[in-house]
Each structure stands twice: as structure tokens, then as C-alpha cells.
Amino acid sequence: MKTFYGTSLPNPLMLGTAQYPSPAILEQAFRDSGAGVATVSLRRESGAGQTFWQMVRELGVMVLPNTAGCHTVKEAVTTAHMAREVFDTKWIKLELIGHTDSLQPDVFQLVEAARVLTEDGFQVFPYTTDDLIVGERLLAAGCEVLMPWGAPIGSGRGLNNAYALRAMRAEFPDVPLVIDAGIGLPSHAAQAMELGYDAVLLNTAVARAGDPAAMAKAMMLAIEAGQLAHQADPIEARDMAEASTPVIGKAFLS
């Protein structure tokens, strides 16, 4: 597995901490899935979320703070600084929302914020689209990880454009790539791993499921299956049947 700014993840599941029915169920989801990274938002709690953040720390997993809800470079940079203080980490998931309905990232501000934060010593995990050129610019700005969307945040639509995501994997073979957003089902997560992605980041699909802990575990199982399948070099799809036993020599004309 590739490392993320020199750190190896225990497994490829990054799990969000928002929208669970209760902190107790959140904790159960982490325990049952074994997810190794927790993402946590700081924007809305603005300094007074100490009790909740302490609960996140006590999960005993790596914490990836995010800038969810930020719309400008300035907001994102301020939030990142706060995150560094609160969680004592250089990691920041950079999210810069550009569109209210689709929550699509504003990639122009994203590149700018990534540059500012990298110069400031942050290790940036940018939430981006599947655009190759944007990916290139983010790498040039100092990012060593890319996190393209599968589909809009919370939509549960899976990998909307598997072609583009495959192209991205091929374009950046050595960069750790994470599918971030849009996952609704374990099969979507498995597909991401089958495409050769290095990790999957999800939140809503688990937190808003009827049984979040069971869904978290299902996601982890699917991610492991997809990862194993990718390593096992799957066969190519083809148009016609290919018999697994030879036909010649059998009395097929009789």
C-alpha cells in the first residue's frame, strides 16, 4: 500500500464522524469496521466542540481534520490552522465548496488553498473532481495525495464516471488516490478498490444507514474484497463465452 505523506494506513477505509444518531453509535461503527482514519469537521463547531473532538480522539485512530463547509481560500486556511492546533496534526482534508446544490469543489480556489497550506507546512488531502489537469495542478501545488469524488457528497450514487477515475489512476500511478464522496453501497467501495484506488473515504452512507455499525463493517469487507481483487489481476471482460474446458476432442458434432 502506498503511504500518505510517509504514513502507512492500517487499512484503506477513512470514515467520517458526522450525522450519526449518537456518539455511541459512531464509536460502534469504528469498532466494528476497524476503520483506521477518522475525518472530522471543525468549521461549524468553531472552537466549542471540544467535548466531541475529545470523543473523536478517544477512538484511537488517526484523525484527518477537514475544512467541510468552507467556500473561500481564507476560510479554509483559517480552519486548517485551527485543526492543526486542536488535533496536533499536519494533515488536512481540503474541501472548498463551489456549488450549493452539488457541493462540487471549486477547483480554482482549491489549487490556491493547497499552495498556501503546503507552504505553511500542511500535508494536504484535496477533495477534487476527476479532472486530470486539476490533479496535475494540485500535485504541482505540493499535494502528495489526490481525493477525487465518485459522485456529489451524500448522493450515494457511487462512481459516476468510472472511465474518468480509471484514467486518473493510469495518469498518476504513483500518487495515493482516494475516492472521496458519493459512495452509497459497499459495491461502490469495492469498485473503487478494483480500479486500483488506494483508499475510500465515506460518511453519509454509514452514518445515515439504519444500522451504521453494520454498514461500516460491510464497507470494510467490500474494500478488502476490492483490494484483494485488484491485487489478484482480474480477467478482462469479453463479448463471447470462453469455455473453461476445451471443446476439441469432444463429440460435439454428434
Binding site: R44, S46, A48, G49, Q50, T51
Partner: peptide
């Protein structure tokens, strides 16, 4: 419903 313990004000949002 916000995981925050600041009850001093409502936010614009």
C-alpha cells in the same frame, strides 16, 4: 443540532 458547547449566539447560517 450541533456538537458545540457554545450557547452564546445563533449563527447567521
Amino acid at each position: 443540532m450541533i456538537e458545540s458547547e457554545d450557547s452564546s449566539r445563533i449563527t447567521a447560517r
